[in-house]
Design a protein around this nucleic acid. Structure first.
Lengths: 224, 224
DNA sequence: GTGCAGACTATCCAAAAGGATTAGATTTAT
DNA sequence: ATAAATCTAATCCTTTTGGATAGTCTGCAC
């Protein structure tokens, strides 16, 4: 059965190109075409439930009601419809907002038309939201830059890293605060020699050979 | 020119299948094959820099040193190498940890072999990290479920800290990455003695007297 | 009990880092 | 043009680290 598609884009050229490409693919039929969010919502109200599209491609920059707001409203009104962003914008802020608004996928317009059809078809087959490689890459970077952080529900993970023993972890914490062997020894009431031995063992486990490298690893990878 | 690839997987079958698939593609050559993280790090130390792989495929579940730890260590040791997770696991926790550890991409093993080759090749062409559709989809869901939240950095202030000069700031950045005097000198084409002089000056401005203390201050106060 | 892993201590050696000082070359500000 | 910073470089000396090795003492598993 053909997939019913909706198109929301303020540029007539875009609407037509997209429409033709989708129809050419054979698996799609066009359920609704709108030129902005207001228009889309209005036209949806005129449709019977069985005429509703299964997936709607939404441009972001539009007059009256932009893509993000359109998606935010539409996903609550029509939770069964999948909204996929199709835009030229790839800045972090827009990506993040669109996803929060409920976007099921995020495609870039410079994606070749066959790719767009293919990705929509794959979405239908696998149930996974289509995402352009460049966008996925940006999201990874956001996570790595700590712009995105994971909120653990129950957490409780004792965060055992690199198989360090309890004592070693304790010593690493002091090390990272700039303590010298002497000071670590004094702090933990052990010989500075022992402190040193522990530190050398830690280095071996982390595969580094200096304090600075160990600290770098600890800070960058969040071992604290 | 062929792309040099590394393979880290504890199952000999996987290593061989992957190896053959990559070699069959024509664009790849195998730089290093290891059966776990320890093995990989050990073999890397034996290689000359020009023999280093450009991309390394890493399995997650391995004995001795698992994939996440391997990536965490390796990305600090070899920042120029791109590490791509290749695994059967697709649970949120593993995905997130691997990305935080510095994974440049995340591929699922049920991806057809041609796809893996293709995605690696595309990565080389576009510079974007390869991500299996199912994984990208999971990440979107994490964001939508508020398991991932965006931390907006409001203070874009360049924040010229402690009146460090431009050169000193430059050197501090290298210092924090674990560079020794020799290495800083080589990096900036100055004498190690000069590098050292700068570092000592930095210490005075920061009122510290060791590398570890300077790093601690830099990281805690966000001087980077 | 035997073995094993972790914590503890120590010593020797080499390399690196820290500190103080001196000093020429350049750039910037007054 | 002169003074003040900054960047550059070197030397001498002390302290700290990193690495290798070697040993004791504990508690826990088989």
């Amino acid at each position: 059965m053909a997939i019913k598609v909706g198109i929301v884009d303020d540029k007539a050229v875009n609407r037509n190109i997209l429409k033709n490409k989708l129809l050419g693919h054979g698996h799609f039929e066009i359920a609704v075409v709108a030129e902005d969010g207001e228009d889309f919502l209005h036209k949806m109200k005129a449709l019977l439930p069985e005429e509703h599209p299964g997936v709607v491609l939404v441009d972001l920059e539009m007059p009256h009601l932009d893509g993000v707001d359109t998606i935010a409203i539409s996903t609550t009104l029509y939770p069964e419809i999948k909204f996929v962003v199709l835009t030229i914008f790839d800045d972090e802020d827009k990506i993040f907002k669109a996803i929060k608004a409920g976007a099921f996928g995020y495609l870039l317009k410079d994606e070749s038309a066959e790719n767009i059809s293919d990705m929509l078809w794959q979405m239908h087959e696998s149930g996974a939201g289509p995402i352009s490689p460049g966008i996925a890459h940006k999201i990874l970077q956001l996570i790595q830059n700590n712009d995105l952080t994971m909120v653990m529900k129950k957490n409780a993970a004792p965060k055992v890293f690199f198989d360090l023993t309890e004592r070693e972890t304790e010593i690493l914490k002091l090390l990272v605060q700039g303590f010298a062997y002497k000071e670590i020894g004094a702090e933990l009431s052990i010989s500075p020699n022992t402190a040193k031995k522990h530190v050398i063992n830690i280095y071996q486990k982390l595969h580094v050979n200096s304090r600075a490298q160990a600290m770098h690893l600890a800070y960058e990878k969040g071992l604290l």
